[in-house]
């Protein structure tokens, strides 16, 4: 049940506990978060504070131990594993710190992959993937495998793969963590560009320079949201 007032993403009292008994560890200790459609959120915080844990839940890759996660008004924590996979396929795109492209697979085939799972016909798949590569400026590199691309180029292919399905949300966990500052700026400009075209972006970063590209900043500390506010 979606009403106009509902945010795209809503976390309420989300906790996440790893392990059981005496060795159990609570990585999230009651997180409340609202993200409006079209926002560009930078998640910051010290190492081990629970940023990635929260992103995995927001990316429907993991479920909260307790609390509610509403995506477009749907309780994700109540969905099955396959239903969450279909939700990722339909609405989400991922960019990882380690790029995570398929090895020995051309840039074009990597970008085509999400379309393959959507069951698009080969011709449409190819056209859409080429258009996505065009948007990240890598059409000429379409036949190169990840091993033949620089880190910055690999991350741009990964962004093309994330946006090729025109997702509602793009999740990026330290997308510039493995890149030098010039390359990082290129990536941030791309993300900003896609955000302007209407894709909601959730990004984890350690660097204030990168967080400056976002509209909203969220600080996580010890498994809790410490502050949420507009970017400077």
């Amino acid at each position: 049940m979606t009403t106009a007032a509902d945010p795209l993403i809503r976390l309420r009292g989300v906790t996440k506990t790893f392990g059981r008994g005496p060795s159990a560890f609570q990585a999230l200790r009651g997180v409340d978060l609202d993200v409006a459609a079209g926002d560009f959120v930078a998640v910051m915080g010290p190492s081990g504070s629970g940023k990635s844990t929260m992103m995995n839940i927001l990316g429907c890759l993991d479920v909260p131990t307790d609390g509610a996660f509403l995506f477009k008004g749907v309780h994700v924590e109540r969905l099955t594993r396959d239903e969450r996979a279909l939700l990722r396929r339909r609405y989400l795109g991922f960019v990882f710190q380690g790029f995570n492209l398929l090895a020995r697979t051309s840039a074009l085939e990597n970008v085509e992959l999400p379309l393959l799972y959507r069951g698009e016909p080969p011709k449409r798949r190819r056209e859409t993937a080429l258009a996505a590569l065009e948007q990240v400026g890598l059409v000429e590199w379409r036949d190169h495998t990840p091993a033949e691309l620089s880190g910055g180029q690999q991350q741009r292919v990964a962004i093309a793969r994330a946006i090729v399905t025109n997702p509602a949300v793009l999740l990026a966990d330290e997308p510039t963590g493995n890149l030098d500052s010039a390359r990082s700026v290129e990536i941030m400009e791309l993300l900003q560009d896609f955000n302007r075209r209407g894709i909601t972006i959730l990004m984890v970063t350690h660097e204030p320079d990168m967080a400056a590209y976002a509209r909203t900043r969220v600080h996580v500390h010890d498994g809790r949201i410490q502050s949420q506010g507009l970017a400077a």
Binding site: G59, L61, R81, D82, A85, L86, R88, R89, R90, L92, F94, N100, L101, L102, A103, L113, P114, Y117, R118, R161
Partner: peptide, 16 residues
Amino acid sequence: TREIGIRLAIGAIGRE
């Protein structure tokens, strides 16, 4: 394993 992880993240269901 990593390839399978990528496929699953992208939205492949277990059956696929």
